[in-house]
């Protein structure tokens, strides 16, 4: 998705001419967004495999500090960005939603990896949530299993573009009566109650996955345990060949 940058009223030619003389003209919006996007504090919150790649991104080779997002905070109260790195299971979903609710506005969310987008390789499992966007709004989806650290950096840059496109006069977190708390699901005996948050996500009308990839894994089709003590099967003796018929006794053809 392309984000349109906030348009400045000042002519670009004039801007560059003034810049040569050491005068910088900017708008409050640009300054404000520049500050916000250059110091995103992500939450130190790893769920599974992708968390290791998230740590690798913070380490020396990829160095997420170049983009101003190196300060991983352990508390959601101090974080701007939640990177959902890994499989969200049904048992973990209430906690993830609660953590997102506890973050202060403005808050952003990146889903890292196939699992948090759709369930990924574990989509057939009974305990896997098929995408965290069923419960909380997501800004950037990062595919991969796991995504490379460069991909996470690209995701962060995409988020920075989104921040740049926001206008603080219209920003929802300065409007009156904003309530961005999402309902926390309960873990019942048959999965999450409710199964999704209708404010955030609506199911598709057609079952895309079933159409494209066939029906999901069928569980319980095998009922009989193998008999391990049984003697190994002897290879079948070749069936005795039918005696050769002489030409005279050949079966009459259908035409005859």
């Amino acid at each position: 998705m392309a984000f349109s940058k906030n348009k400045s009223q000042v002519d670009d030619g004039l801007k560059s001419e003034l810049a040569k003389k050491g005068i910088v003209i900017t708008t409050l919006n640009e300054l404000y967004n520049w500050g916000r996007r250059s110091s995103i504090w992500p939450m130190q919150f790893g769920l599974a495999c992708c968390a290791i790649e998230m740590i690798a991104t913070a380490c020396a080779r990829y160095d997420i500090a170049r983009f101003g997002a190196e300060l991983f905070r352990a508390s959601p109260r101090q974080a701007d960005l939640i990177i959902i790195a890994g499989t969200v299971t049904k048992k973990m979903t209430p906690q993830v939603v609660r953590l997102y609710n506890q973050m202060a506005e403005p808050k952003y969310c990146i889903t890292m990896g196939a699992c948090s987008i759709s369930g990924g390789p574990f989509i057939d499992g009974y305990n896997t949530l098929r995408g965290i966007d069923r419960f909380i709004p997501v800004d950037v989806h990062l595919p991969g299993c796991p995504p490379r650290p460069e991909a996470l950096l690209y995701g962060l840059q995409t988020l920075q573009k989104k921040i740049d496109s926001q206008d603080f006069r219209k920003a929802p977190w300065y409007q009156k009566g904003l309530k961005r708390e999402y309902a926390i699901p309960d873990l019942g005996p048959k999965g999450l109650i409710p199964k999704f948050n209708p404010e955030v996500w609506q199911p598709r009308e057609e079952d895309h996955r079933k159409e494209k990839y066939g029906s999901p894994m069928v569980i319980g089709k095998k009922t009989k345990a193998p008999d391990l003590d049984a003697p190994p099967k002897q290879p079948k003796a070749p069936a005795p060949k039918p005696p050769k018929r002489s030409d005279d006794s050949a079966p009459p053809s259908k035409e005859a």
């Binding site: 499989t87 299971t89 009974y126």
Partner: peptide, 29 residues
């Protein structure tokens, strides 16, 4: 159980060679 991803059940419903990438995700280090 917060990361219970049904590894064993999935493996019982896919072919032997298809289990190989799932074993990567057991101990992801």
């Amino acid at each position: 159980g917060y990361l219970h991803r049904n590894h064993e059940q999935i493996a019982e419903n896919i072919t032997y060679s298809a289990s190989m990438p799932y074993t990567d995700r057991l101990d992801y280090f």
